[in-house]
Amino acid sequence: MVPLSWYIILSAVVFSIGVIGFLTRRNLIMTFMSIELMLNSVNISFVAFSHYLQSMRGQIIVFFVIAVAAAETAIGLAIIIAYYKNNPTIKVDEINLLKG
């Protein structure tokens, strides 16, 4: 039997990798993919808890997380395209219009 904590540790490690990717990459699309990675790591822990607590709630929440992630990706990529039309760059450190 695999202990529950192994799943949660895996989830925490993958989430941290997602955080590192989000904070370090210059490419806006890679930043977005890091967000997807973080959402997936949380999904792993939800499903693991659902299995070990013998409850369906975790799987239902993962279902909603996937729906929201799909919506978030569609909106975010549309924002990237809209931004790219005005300023042709997707490097996050060159997107500084709001800098005073």
Binding site: I17, R26, N27
Partner: peptide, 21 residues
């Protein structure tokens, strides 16, 4: 491919990983 302050990001991620694990 990485930002100028990439070390800060990696440090934050590692600290987060250590704490959460």
């Amino acid at each position: 491919k990485f930002q100028k302050h990439w070390l800060v990001g990696v440090g934050t991620g590692i600290i987060f990983a250590v704490f959460s694990v």
